[in-house]
């Protein structure tokens, strides 16, 4: 399996680390315990197309959002996390 990193190009699986479901959003500071509990523990594990976080630790250290079919391992989209890439100094 290979992942096409938006910064580095097509790279082998061994350069990446898997985290899991990319859908949950970290709740706001005042969201309460239930919301944080859901965020921490309730993760989807879909047999099919799923949005996942992968880390290009063996390359540019970007966190990526990878759309992957967990049944076929087919990867249909890869995008960099919002804060990946160059600094936004002065922006």
């Amino acid at each position: 399996m290979r992942i096409t990193c938006p910064f580095c190009g097509e790279r082998e699986l061994g350069e990446f680390t898997y985290l899991g479901d990319a859908k949950p959003q970290r709740p706001a500071a005042d969201a309460g315990e239930d919301a944080v509990y859901d965020y921490v523990y309730l993760r989807d594990n879909i047999a099919g197309v799923m949005s996942e976080h992968w880390y290009h630790g063996g390359g540019c250290r970007a966190w990526l959002k990878v759309t992957r079919n967990t049944l076929t391992h087919e990867i249909s989209a890869v995008e960099a996390a919002a804060g990946a890439g160059a600094a936004k100094v002065g922006a």
């Binding site: 680390t17 985290l19 970290r26 976080h53 880390y55 630790g57 250290r61 970007a62 966190w63 960099a80 996390a81 919002a82 804060g83 990946a84 600094a87 936004k88 100094v89 922006a91």
Partner: peptide, 22 residues
């Protein structure tokens, strides 16, 4: 050492992209 770097990059890039930090 490696895991904390990965964790902090996750915080910076995914959780808090609005912060100006490298």
């Amino acid at each position: 050492a490696g895991l904390v770097m990965q964790h902090l990059e996750f915080c910076r890039q995914v959780l808090f992209p609005e912060l100006d930090v490298q």
